[in-house]
Computed example of a mutant assay.
Amino acid sequence: MHAKHTTSSHPSDSSGALPRRALLGALGAVAVTGAVSRPAAAAGSAIASSRSASASAAYVLLSRQAWGADESLRFGPDGSETWPPDYHPVQTLSVHHTGSANGEANPAARVRTIYRDQTVGQDWGDIGYHYLIDAAGLVYEGRWSGTDGDPAHNAAGRLVTAAHIATYNSGNVGIALLGTFTTSAPTSAARGALVQLLAELATRHSIDPLQQKVGYVNPVNGATWSGPAISGHRDWAATACPGGVLHAQLPAIRADVAALMG
């Protein structure tokens, strides 16, 4: 979660993949550098009409360059990375909200604000999430993971450790929806992109979205946790994140992810 309502540890945690969707394009004043997209994952006929918004449209991913990440913030005065990346196999997927205003006119500016706050203000070396999703359903590449062109992963397909749930970061994918979902729900576009992204990641990493008892073990510090394969931040810690309304939607979201995976 955004520092406004959460505390996360730094990246070290010391205390057949589906094709990616990507848009290396412009947002605001950022220059266009090209675009790549792909169709949605195949959805079975069992998907109910009430789920059509979640299952129909493929998501679009904005690169760090596209949303205007200032990469110099990740480095100290001596030119070294504040928190050098490390990588581990994915064990679980976690959903957050950022605690910011809903429906902001310039979501890329919000992502840049969160990035600066968490990288410099919180001293986490980079943004704490692997992915962020705005109200229009655009997905933003989060934590820097290398130069291989695979967001959140290294060339071997392992997840870069981020900083979104204190003590439980390594091997834990963090996805944050921009906004506050304590009393209001995400837009259908944001929810649809979340389902698409979760389905892609779950397929890629052989995760059962309906599994209720995953035995997570942090490979760095040995911390253990047991809970849903797709969880909310509050399932891990005493926090309001990802908001009561969004958290209450997670069972239906897990079902939509499973249906989309076929």
Results as ranks from 00 to 15, higher is better:
A3R: 11
S8D: 13
H10Q: 10
S12A: 11
S12K: 05
D13P: 03
D13I: 06
D13L: 03
S14Q: 11
G16L: 14
A17R: 12
A22R: 09
A22D: 07
V30G: 05
A31H: 04
A31F: 11
T33K: 13
S37A: 13
S37N: 10
R38M: 11
A42D: 06
A43G: 09
A46R: 08
I47Y: 01
S50Y: 10
S52Y: 14
A53S: 12
Y59E: 05
R64D: 01
Q65N: 06
A66D: 03
D70W: 01
L73F: 01
R74F: 00
R74S: 01
G76V: 04
E81Q: 14
D86C: 08
P89A: 15
Q91I: 05
H96W: 13
H97N: 15
G99M: 05
G99C: 06
G99I: 04
G103F: 13
A109C: 07
T113D: 15
Y115P: 01
R116G: 03
R116Q: 15
D117A: 14
Q118Y: 09
G121Q: 11
D123P: 06
W124L: 15
G125N: 08
I127N: 06
I127S: 06
G128F: 10
L132V: 07
L132I: 05
L132Y: 13
I133M: 07
I133S: 01
A135D: 15
G137I: 02
V139G: 02
V139W: 08
Y140C: 02
E141C: 05
G142W: 07
R143Q: 08
R143T: 14
W144V: 04
S145I: 07
G146V: 10
D148A: 10
D150C: 04
A155Y: 10
A156G: 13
T161L: 11
T167M: 08
S170Y: 07
G171F: 02
V173G: 00
V173A: 04
A176E: 15
G179K: 02
T182V: 10
T183H: 00
A189Y: 04
R191T: 13
G192V: 06
L198N: 02
L201F: 15
A202Q: 00
R204Y: 08
S206Q: 14
D208W: 04
P209R: 01
Q211W: 02
K213W: 06
K213T: 15
V214N: 02
V217G: 07
V217N: 06
P219R: 03
V220S: 01
T224K: 08
W225P: 03
S226N: 13
H233E: 15
H233K: 04
D235T: 09
A238N: 08
T239F: 04
T239P: 00
T239V: 10
C241W: 00
G243K: 03
H247K: 12
L250N: 04
P251R: 10
P251A: 09
A252K: 09
R254Y: 03
R254F: 08
A255L: 13
D256V: 03
A258H: 12
A258E: 03
A259V: 15
L260C: 04
L260W: 01
